[in-house]
Amino acid sequence: MSSAAISQTRLPAWLMRTLVILFLLGIWEAGSQYGFINAFTAPPPSAIFFAFIRLVEAGDITRALALTFFEAFTAASIGTIVGVAAGYFLHRSKMAGLAYTSWVAAAASAPLVLIYPLFLVIFGRNPATIIAMGALGCMPPIILKAKEGLDGVRPVLLNVGRALNLSARKQFWMIQFPAALPTIFNGIRIGLLFAIINVVGVEFLISLGGLGYMIAYLGDRFDYPAMYAGILFVIFVSVVFFLLTERLEKWLLSSR
């Protein structure tokens, strides 16, 4: 579609998005009110909304969100430090890069969350397991993007430093790292989302609190409106995170 066609309708993009969501919610609501959709397993949006209010008023959702946020943030921080260092190593050592990069890529596409029992044995039934799983989950994209960014620095920029006789350290910190930063940051953004997914996933599995556990618990009690409220809230939080980090990235890299 051309941009002219879009501007002719004079509907801003956000409004078009909202309309689609409202339309789908409307079909859902009507469907379960009139019995086309089973209202027990798929409660109508209005019921979900009231359940959400209930969760907020009881304070369940804020507590769960705080814990999940703490776990995901810690996991992503650890994943970033280890992942960028590992990416640097794969970039620096040609042999290691050739040998292991495809493993990391494979790990990035594997459902790592399934090895949680192993972590449960290592770290015990406590938040450390969840944080470790989150950190592990967010590492592959961070490693791959860090390596890609460092590999992809244009040779001419490095030659500028070489012509100035820069020390290896200055060459890295003054040229190579800032040049690779947009790609590295991109990896961290993807990694953060992977961390949230893994953290919520493991919370769901091992009953230690957080949004994932809340969803599992409400489902077990057949409180489906509240369970859906929890699921939609997790989706909402992820989307907000994605958009916020996108903003942050644009702001940080506004000069390029």
């Binding site: 001419v156 920029l157 030659n159 003054m174 930063l181 000069s255 390029r256």
Partner: peptide
């Protein structure tokens, strides 16, 4: 060699630095 400066054919300015910070780069280093 420090007495020899090079200007390259390809675009070689640092995109993360302003014009003045680009020019100041060798002195900063």
């Amino acid at each position: 060699h420090k007495e020899i400066g090079m200007v390259f054919q390809e675009e070689s300015t640092f995109p993360w630095r302003t014009a003045i910070d680009n020019v100041a780069f060798p002195m900063e280093a």
